[in-house]
């Protein structure tokens, strides 16, 4: 699902001015950069970091939704949620594959995630406390992800752009599915409606934070924009998201938890209240209510599964040895 504004990439490059200018000319001509092409080290580093954060977000993102698979209230919803979480894992898999084309292995990236060195989307450090969270995550979190990711389909790095085309198709399906889940609750019993309003109250601000810091505070945007890794600024995307979401909430008869939210005729969009950036940075740095538990769950799966991975390698080695012996 869900990348967010890139956190902390070092885009500096030491190549010659001539090399950088040649590279920039290709970017400006909308050439796709492919794995074997020459590229500035800063470009490679920025992409590895961004694709890595994105892949990790997909993998960690399986946990908050996985939390409700065993309790889904109907078999239809259970199947849909399983399929969705499976899609997210699939996104993780092809994003890791896209990152591998830049010379980093999945194992290295996994180790960085488990050691806490690599970041993932802050949204997954919030807990899923009710079934309605499954709808709200689809509607808002996947919705925010789509705003971020549609432009990535035109990213200058070919493997990432191509991976994003499929990811976006699936995310867009997830978003509609999430909204449809919210509809069932909003138009259901009073208890169901209260459940979805409560979920909206909890997820609205964290969803807005998914777009990353305000443009004025975003250190890496300029270089990423010049290299066409990124096509719109954090604030532009956030605004598009709010403008699209407000009427959807109105249709459901739900209230967005922002008293300052109002239409601004002059700008042709909604104004919103201040975002609590101290909370954002706390959560990004691993102080979210679930941060420790998420990484602990990933570590446990990885460590508990070590003997399985070792056995697969050992068996493959035995087979290869037998094949050689037989020849």
């Amino acid at each position: 699902m869900y990348s967010q504004g890139l956190i902390g990439a070092d885009g500096r490059s030491t190549e010659s001015a001539e090399f950088l200018a040649r590279f920039q000319a290709r970017i400006d001509a909308e050439d796709k950069i492919e794995p074997n092409d020459a590229m500035p080290e800063g470009y490679r580093r920025t992409l590895i970091r961004q694709i890595g954060q994105h892949a990790h977000s997909e993998i960690v993102g399986m946990l908050p939704e996985g939390n409700w698979i065993t309790r889904a209230p109907s078999l239809r919803r259970k199947a849909a949620l399983l399929a969705k979480v499976q899609d997210e894992g699939g996104h993780g898999l092809y994003l890791y594959a896209a990152a591998e084309t830049l010379g980093v292995s999945r194992e290295e990236m996994t180790e960085e995630l488990l050691s806490g060195k690599a970041k993932y989307s802050s949204i997954f450090n919030y807990p899923t406390l009710s079934w309605a969270d499954m709808g709200i995550i689809g509607w808002l979190v996947d919705g925010a992800a789509i705003m971020n990711q549609i432009p990535l389909c035109r990213c200058s790095y070919g493997p990432y752009a191509r991976a994003m085309i499929r990811v976006c198709k699936e995310e867009s399906f997830h978003q509609r599915q999430g909204y449809e889940l919210c509809m069932a609750l909003a138009f259901g019993t009073p208890d169901q409606k209260a459940m979805v309003q409560d979920a909206l109250n909890r997820w609205w601000w964290p969803s807005l934070m998914m777009f990353g810091p305000h443009d004025a505070d975003s250190q890496h945007s300029d270089q990423s924009m010049a290299w066409k890794i990124k096509r719109f600024t954090n604030d532009e995307l956030r605004q598009k998201f709010i403008d699209a979401t407000v009427p959807q909430a109105e249709y459901l008869g739900l209230t967005l938890p922002d008293p300052d939210l109002k239409w601004n005729d002059a700008k042709g969009g909604y104004d919103h209240g201040p975002i609590d950036w101290s909370e954002f940075w706390r959560v990004v740095k691993g102080q979210g209510p679930m941060a420790r538990d998420r990484i602990k769950a990933r570590k446990k799966a990885w460590e508990d599964g070590a003997w399985v991975r070792e056995a697969a390698l050992a068996h493959a080695a035995k087979r290869a040895a037998r094949k050689i012996a037989a020849e």
Partner: peptide, 14 residues
């Protein structure tokens, strides 16, 4: 389905 997100490798998570 209880395995989902907790499998020994990503391929098995799928």
């Amino acid at each position: 389905s209880e395995w989902c997100g907790h499998a020994p490798m990503l391929e098995e998570d799928l």
